[in-house]
């Protein structure tokens, strides 16, 4: 475990916990895309199937349980909580996420490492994670104003992905370990999606103005 990997996991953990805390504390999910949260819950559900079969480490298992628990809790809060659900902006959060799930499913059936159910679902989760943030980015552009917690959420997710890329580079040079090219390409595409957001996030931070994404 290298520092980039640990920092990446901690940043990822912070992103989901910050979001869950926001929703739990202020009983509002304004600005949060339910579609993105459902996609992340699906990503974790299809990726962490090995939690029952392969034991890697206590850390690995605990983190998987936290990610599963927090992502499903967030979906539950937005869908079911009698107060939170009122602040969900369903008119704006209209990204048809089936248009993301189906292509990822097909791509996993076409391009994978091994043709086993577990491997296909794992590959599907890698592709889906790469695009899961799209409904949230679209919602941020539609609502134009970004309340700082949602901005922080996207920022932390982007930081987690960037740190994972540093982790892969570090492992390549130190352990001669290379991640599978599917993981590498999907991870790169996912991180590039955040690059645009980062630019506007830093611009607004530098000029100390409210973050406005171009329409």
């Amino acid at each position: 475990m290298n520092i980039f990997r640990l920092a990446g996991d901690m940043t990822h953990l912070a992103s989901v916990l910050v979001l869950l805390l926001k929703i739990h504390t202020i009983k509002s999910c304004a600005g949060v895309s339910l579609k993105t949260q459902e996609l992340y819950a699906l990503v974790f559900a299809t990726r962490y199937l090995d939690i029952f079969t392969d034991f890697i480490s206590v850390y690995n298992t605990v983190m998987k349980l936290i990610f599963l628990g927090s992502s499903f809790s967030i979906v539950w809060y937005i869908r079911r909580h009698k107060i939170v659900r009122r602040s969900y902006d369903k008119e704006q959060d209209t990204f048809r996420h089936y248009f993301l799930v189906l292509p990822c499913l097909l791509l996993a059936l076409l391009i994978h490492e091994k043709f086993t159910v577990k491997e296909l679902l794992w590959t599907f989760s890698i592709y889906l994670e790469a695009v899961a943030i799209l409904p949230q980015l679209v919602l941020l552009q539609r609502t134009r104003n970004i309340d700082n917690l949602t901005g922080q959420y996207v920022f932390l997710l982007g930081a987690y992905r960037s740190l994972y890329i540093l982790n892969w580079i570090y492992r390549y040079f130190t352990e001669r370990h290379f991640v599978h090219w599917i993981t590498w390409i999907a991870g790169l595409v996912q991180t590039l999606l955040y690059a645009d957001f980062f630019y506007y996030y830093f611009e607004s931070w530098k000029n100390n103005v409210k973050l406005q994404l171009p329409a």
Binding site: R5, I56, Y164, V179
Partner: peptide, 10 residues
């Protein structure tokens, strides 16, 4: 599964 196969990342 050999080492590289084990998916040790989250």
């Amino acid at each position: 599964a050999d080492e590289s196969d084990v998916k040790d990342e989250l």
